[in-house]
Amino acid sequence: MSDSADGVSRRTLLKAAGATLGAAAFAQALAPLASWAEGMSSEDFLATHYKELDAEGLKTALKRIEEDTKKKTGVDVHVTADAPIPGVKFGYALNLSICIGCRKCAEACHEENNHDRKTNNSYIRVFEMDKGSIDFAKGTVDYAHPVPQPDKFYMPVQCQQCDNAPCVSVCPVEATWKEADGIVVVDYDWCIGCRYCEAACPYHARRFNWQAPEVPAKEINPDQGYLSNRLRPQGVMEKCHFCLHRTRKGKLPACLEACPTGARVFGNLLDPDSEIRWVLANKRVFVLKEELGTKPSFFYFFDE
């Protein structure tokens, strides 16, 4: 360098000014982050993984969610965290012979699980397909005519609660896992939102919160579960949880109660006298995409 001492210092000064300007510009560019961080408490940020919560921690967490919900929506909700029932593994079977495609199940899911109203989100998608083959490529989900159409059949698809769940294996942070009763759950406070599970799921069962879901206060279902239908934050994954806030209390899932035809059969796979076991033993049962080896706990069947 052959600059004079004066040149060097002027250059250094200019560099410093440039660096300051650059830093200020970046701070300005990132300003929207400030409002985002404002809505987040340090408990949110430092939330503990569900499996690492002890009894006391869980109680605190449930209370925090209830208080947060009250603050944000004005609604008093009751959040529970029922543990799996020992000796129970849930199974679900769906009778394709009598499903009429009325979408009552999808609608019940929408209301029960506090789904975003604008997108009419639901964990269930009902496909209308031509009789003759199960060809999703020829199926539609947005039919609006009266059902059932004589030349069609209907196939609702939701999380298959796989025993060998690809979505669970791929999660980089163990934010989704399979519970002892077979339900694959998501910890909404732990998910980082990478959506690898959504790519891995062969059944289009997962939904991402592209923005915070919006539910009018008076429509919020106050009976909520930590791992199920509590209001989800923005940027995390969610999925069907067999209504575990109901089913772990012995109740039927909302989609089953809404089904007018009784096409849905729910129960304990480990109980040889359960209805679901009767279906598996006496009906022609199949699982979706069996060749993938996902081992679903969700079955489809036909009446002979």
Partner: peptide, 11 residues
């Protein structure tokens, strides 16, 4: 056997 006809309540 619970595989026809709607129901509500407890499994």
């Amino acid at each position: 056997h619970g595989s026809h006809g709607g129901m509500t309540g407890f499994w």
